[in-house]
Every structure is written in structure tokens, then in C-alpha cells.
Design a protein around this nucleic acid. Sequence first.
DNA 1: TGGGTGACTTGACAGTGTCAAGATTCAGTC
DNA 2: GACTGAATCTTGACACTGTCAAGTCACCCA
Lengths: 199, 199
Amino acid sequence: MSDSCPSSRYHHGDLPGALRRAAWDMVGEAGVRGLSLRECARRAGVSHAAPAHHFGSLEGLLIEVAADGYERMAVIMDEEIERAGDRLPGCGLGYIRFATTHPQQFRLMLGTDRGAGESPRLREAASAALGRLREAIRDAWIARHGQSPDDVFLEERTALAWSAAHGYALLSIDRQLLTTSLPSAWRVLSPLIETLLRP
Amino acid sequence: MSDSCPSSRYHHGDLPGALRRAAWDMVGEAGVRGLSLRECARRAGVSHAAPAHHFGSLEGLLIEVAADGYERMAVIMDEEIERAGDRLPGCGLGYIRFATTHPQQFRLMLGTDRGAGESPRLREAASAALGRLREAIRDAWIARHGQSPDDVFLEERTALAWSAAHGYALLSIDRQLLTTSLPSAWRVLSPLIETLLRP
DNA sequence: TGGGTGACTTGACAGTGTCAAGATTCAGTC
DNA sequence: GACTGAATCTTGACACTGTCAAGTCACCCA
């Protein structure tokens, strides 16, 4: 059963999933502004009003697609952690790799505003990505200092690491806007590792 | 002559400026998705097709409004530099202050994509903001080491500083999404100053 | 097997972006 | 002062959009 060929006329079978995949593809092709509910419905093979039953509105679909993005990001972060063999740089580089390979979707993810707080799935997915970074810092700290850092201190270092990775990711995707020659992620961010692990 | 009261029926007097101010206000009120060309035209007191003559399309208006954003950001960075008495933290804190006081406009600024590279005014405005940070790092380096840093090295440190400030700014405005308790900008970012100035 | 709910379809409405044709205003030249 | 051309609009049209309401079909459970 494909996305655009429903199992029956009034019962798609997996319409929410098909709509989210269609939205993901359209954002990748044409950016957030190029996304429309009706075109998603066409690609899923249903009528224009079908999505409302599952997502309420276009805004509702966008929020769920942003949550999808964080879940996909977590997968790439895990891959990069495994490839790098070192969790802390693996997390950061995975984050950046996701953003540079999915620039338009990445923009959607950080473009969602107040309504996004209402989605438990989005909150969880975003927190999970942040949690990987927090765990990586905690483990690196324990390896260096023999004991766990203070919770408040850990939050500060996590915020610093996330900020730097996030900001660098945006520099990468906005490169025509800000600079024509951006130094590599490693060269820019590796000095930060020492900072994160110093009391 | 106000924005919505043209000096004559077929000659507004400053229509481009009025449209950009209307767009700025609408983005602030309802986010990028809440902006429409026709509503901007209504607020400026002209017909729906008038903006096309100045901006070509909605996309063209968005790009110019993003450039406005960077110019306003530069003003706030300069104010914060003066208030802090120290350029490097002043730049960073000014950047963050702008983002947290204009979250929706800030999102517009980083939401612009490929077409934005075409606007010399946007490129210049964005580069000027980045240039302030580069100058602040260079000056702080000279104060510490007695001579200017290598250009490549300076670009790396500038990218690191921008990334961290930018990332923290986004954490601030997305706070319902990622965390309910974000440590202050100073506590998160001040360890970075030492990193920026170490060879 | 029937009923209730879920999952759609159809149709309508208001708003949008953009384009084309036309009207008005301004500025420069003679 | 009149004329001309360009700038700056207005009007109208079209296609697309999001959302809502009413109706139809499919599925599942008692």
C-alpha cells in the first residue's frame, strides 16, 4: 500500500504518516513557504479536507513534522556518535550533519513558535536530542574528574554546547548570506571541548 | 504624512518604507505565517497590487524586512557594547537581547533562504553585524597578546562566538520547547571568552 | 446484524499572491 | 505651458490556499 494509493476510498490506512512524509518532502523541495495542506493531501491521494481530521489544521501538521525532524536528528546523532567513537564531538557533529543535509526541514524545526509547546511529542523529541548532549557532557566530565558534575553546572555546559552546535549549523546553511568561506565544524568547535570540561 | 494616509491617491510618498514597517509589525504580532502582502498594502493605505512595483513579490518584501532586522540588530549591539563598556560581551549580549525582544522577527531573519543571497542590502547588513563581533574579538586579542591574530584563526574564533550567541538566542526564544529553566546568558557564555582568546 | 464512531468526500467561502491592462502623477525637456 | 516618458499606482481577474459544515462510506463491537 503506497502513500498515494489508499487501501480504500474512505480509508487510507495510514493517512497521518503519508501526510507527514509528503510534508517532509515538500519542505525539503521548496521550503516552509512551499508547503500546502492541499498539495500534501493530493500527494497522499485524498481530498483536501481529509488532513483536518488528523491534524486539525496546517499548523498542527507543521508541529508534527517538526517532531519528526527531531526524531530523525536523534538517529543521525547516534550514527555520528558511533562513527566518531567519542560521544561529545559525535553529538555536535551529528547535529550539524543533520542540519546541513536537511536545511529546509531544519528551518521548519526552529521556526515553530508558541503553539509547538502544546505538542508532547515535539517536546519529548526535542528534549531527547538535547538529552543526548547532556549525557555526553556528563560522561566526559566523569571520565576527566572522576565524579558527576553539579546539575546546575551541567545545565550551563549543556546550554553552551547546544548553542554552539546550533549556531554553527545555521551558519552552515546560511552560508551565502553571511560568509563565503566558513571554517570546518571541527576547527571552529573543538576548542570548546576543553571549555566544557573545565571547572 | 502618515504610513496609511498617502500624499495623493496615486503617489504614496514613501510606500516602500511604509510596507516594510507594516510587515515588521505584522511579523511581530503573528509570526512569519501571519504576514500577508494584501494586509501590508491595507495598512499602508494602498491597493493590493501596489507592493509589486517596489518588491516584485512577497518574497522580495520578506528579504528587505530581514535586512531591516539586521540593521536594527546592529543598533542594539552598539547600545549594549556602550552599556557593557566591554565590546566582546557587549556584542554577544546585544545579539541575544535583540533576539529575545523580537523573537518573531528574529525567526524571519534566519528563515530566509536561497533567494536572500541576491540582496546586496541583506548581505551587507548581515555582514556588518558579524563584522562587529570580529572586530571585538580582534581588539580583545590585541589587548591580551599585543598583536593581531592570524586572519584564518580570527575567522574560526568569530564563527565560534557567533555560533554560541546565535544558538543561545534561539534557546531563549524557544524556551517552552526545549527547557523550562535556561541559565542566564552570562553564566552560559562567559566561559567562552577565555576560549576565544587562547591561542 | 445493526449501530455508532472513525475516516473520509463534497461544496462553499474568504483570503491570498500574482499578473495584465489601464489610470494618474511626477519630472524633465522644449 | 505643453508634451512625453517613466514611475507609481488602481482595478479586475485567476488560480490556489485554509478552514468549515454537511454528508457518505468503512470499520469495529456488542
